[in-house]
Design a protein around this nucleic acid. Structure first.
Lengths: 151, 151
DNA sequence: TATTAGATTAGAATAATTCCATTCTCGTAA
DNA sequence: TTACGAGAATGGAATTATTCTAATCTAATA
């Protein structure tokens, strides 16, 4: 976190209280929050914070390579402050996201004819599964009802 | 396509002109259209078609396993009538999506501790790259300007 | 050909995200 | 310190994707 603040300053970015709160919330956070999750959390401390600020900050952080934008939930983006290359698994029932730090880089090379057309810049594996909790719930709760339980 | 119609009927679904138009548009389509793309196209033939019909049809097709929902573009879902397991590459400049039919299934096994928590149901690799066209364009066009060129 | 389950429609509602104009403030230079 | 200016925060409107709803229609079959 300290380093993040320093890095932030080095890049000529202003450290406002709102930004600090967002940085603090993200630091070490493994819950893969959405912009809305972050907004809700920051709002507790800064009730006047605007969505635009959250999005702006996330955009800046993303541009600086300080957060990962996760495209795994078709409803919305999620964010991950862990920028070490890794992958994710999402529960198809409750949308809970888990981290996967296995290194598959050697195993998922692009086929030649694709590499000829696209200059590769990265990759990300979306795994889909059903988490323990939902495996149990699904015995008696429909998916629609579980949808309602999502925060 | 023929088979799809038959399958469609077998499942007790009505074959309306709008649905047929959507099925026709999707059949063999490798352009990974979004719901909006499909809507725009069908509207030419059925000017009164509603977005709800497009979404309904896509949902039905998806439930029946006849189209793949692609979560690679954070802006919106894309659809792929090719339901053979495969992966995708997206151009980070123009969002063009390409297919990758390489089989990586043996190479991307879940780590044990994850497999213990999640019952696996699938996976999908998102590759990111810059397509030929954008590699050339990028010599003199900013990303913002290219954004505007997206259809 | 009448029936009806299921499909279509327009439009409203919702949700995520972006945009914009105004106001504010952090960080620096005097 | 203090004043300044670039960049940041704000509220609210606007956009975009998607879902919902209630009324109307129609494909398929009896």
């Amino acid at each position: 976190m300290k380093e993040l603040i320093i890095k932030y300053k080095e890049k000529g970015l202003k450290l406002t209280p709102q930004r600090l709160a967002i940085l603090n919330y993200l630091d070490g956070n493994t819950s893969h929050p959405s912009a809305g999750d972050i907004y809700k959390h920051i709002k507790r401390v800064y009730p006047t914070v605007s969505f635009a600020t959250v999005y702006n900050t996330l955009q800046v952080l993303h541009e600086k390579g300080e957060v990962m934008e996760i495209t795994i939930d078709p409803q919305k983006k999620h964010y991950d402050p862990n920028t070490k290359a890794h992958h994710h698994i999402i529960c198809t029932e409750c949308n809970k996201i888990g981290d996967i730090f296995e290194d598959y880089s050697g195993a998922i090379r692009l086929p030649h004819h694709i590499a000829e057309e696209f200059k590769p810049v990265g990759n990300h594996i979306n795994f889909y599964g059903i988490c323990k909790k939902c495996q149990n719930l699904s015995r008696y709760v429909s998916k629609r009802e579980k949808q309602k339980r999502r925060d």
